[in-house]
Amino acid sequence: MKEIALYALDIAQNSITARARHLDIALEEGPEAITLTIADDGTGMSPELLARVSDPFTTTRTTRKMGLGIPLLRLAAEQTGGHVSIESTLGVGTTVTAVFCPGHIDCPPVGDMAGTVTLLVQGAPELELTYTHRRGDRLSRLDTGELRAVLGPEVSLAEPEVVLWLRDYLQEQEALLEE
C-alpha cells in the first residue's frame, strides 16, 4: 500500500468484518509524527490471536491463508522510525495506532482520506463512524450520527446524492487543513 489512507481503509474493513457498530478514525499530522488511530467496538481478539496478529501467516479469513494488513502497516511505520501498537479485548473491541515519522524518506503520503471515509460510509451506511483529522491547530471532523440526525431516518447514507455530498464535504475539509 502506498498511502496511509489505504492502510486506514484496510484496518477499518477489518473492524467492519469484526461486526463493529462504532468506528473512530483519527489522523493527526504534526512535524514529528503522523499518527493514525482506528478504534472499534467489534468482537476484539483473544490474547493468543493478538500475540500473532503481526505474523503475515495469521488470519481469521477463510478465503486465503495470509493476512497482510497489520504486518504491512507495521513494516511501513517501522521503516520510517515509527511503530504500531494494538490493544484488543475479546468482546469489547480493538484499537490500532500507527505512528509514522514524516521527515523520513520512506514515509508514505497521507493520500485520499476523503475517499477512504466516503467509501467506508457508503459500504457500511449503518456504521456509526467518527472521523477526525488534525493538522497543527486545524481540525476536520465528521460524525455519521450527526449526519443522520440532520437527514432523518428515512435517508440512507448510501444514497448516491448523500455519498456525492459527503465526498465533496470531506474534500473541502481536507483542503482547508492544507491552507
Rank of each mutant, 00 (worst) to 15 (best):
G67T: 07
G81A: 11
T80M: 08
E78F: 01
I16H: 08
P109M: 06
E29Q: 15
G69A: 15
R74M: 03
R135Y: 05
L9D: 10
A20F: 09
M45A: 03
Y169W: 11
T97I: 06
V150S: 08
N14S: 12
I34P: 05
H83P: 03
H104M: 07
R74I: 00
L68I: 09
A124I: 01
V121Y: 09
G123K: 14
P125E: 08
D143F: 03
A114S: 15
V84A: 04
R21N: 13
I25F: 00
A12S: 15
A33K: 11
R138A: 15
T35V: 15
F100K: 05
P71E: 00
D40W: 02
V121L: 11
A77H: 06
R19K: 15
T58H: 01
T63G: 04
D24L: 10
G82R: 04
R21M: 04
D106M: 04
T132V: 14
D106W: 01
E159Q: 13
S54A: 10
G123E: 14
G44V: 04
I25P: 03
G123H: 04
I11E: 13
M66C: 02
V92H: 07
I4N: 06
T62M: 09
E161M: 10
L127Q: 06
V99P: 02
R61N: 08
L68R: 00
E32R: 13
T130A: 10
A18E: 12
H104P: 03
I34S: 01
H104L: 04
S85N: 10
A77Q: 03
G30E: 10
Q173E: 14
G93H: 08
G136Y: 07
W165G: 15
A26R: 15
R64G: 12
E154V: 12
P108H: 03
A5I: 11
A98D: 07
I105G: 03
P47K: 04
Q173W: 03
E178S: 13
T60R: 11
W165V: 03
R74F: 00
T63A: 14
R138K: 14
A158L: 05
D40E: 09
Q122T: 08
E78H: 05
G67S: 09
S54F: 02
R134K: 14
L129E: 09
A114N: 08
S85T: 15
R134N: 05
H104E: 13
V99K: 05
R19F: 12
T89R: 10
T43M: 08
R64V: 06
T144L: 10
S15G: 14
A5G: 04
A33L: 09
L75H: 01
E178N: 13
A26Q: 12
H133A: 08
E146Y: 08
G115M: 07
T89V: 12
T89W: 06
P109D: 11
G136F: 08
V117A: 08
G145P: 02
S85P: 01
R74K: 14
A51R: 13
S156L: 10
P71D: 01
A77K: 03
Q122N: 12
D143M: 09
F57T: 10
A149Y: 03
D106Y: 06
L157R: 12
E29S: 13
P56S: 04
L27D: 07
A51L: 02
G67Q: 06
S140P: 07
D143K: 09
G30V: 01
T94S: 11
H133W: 10
L120P: 05
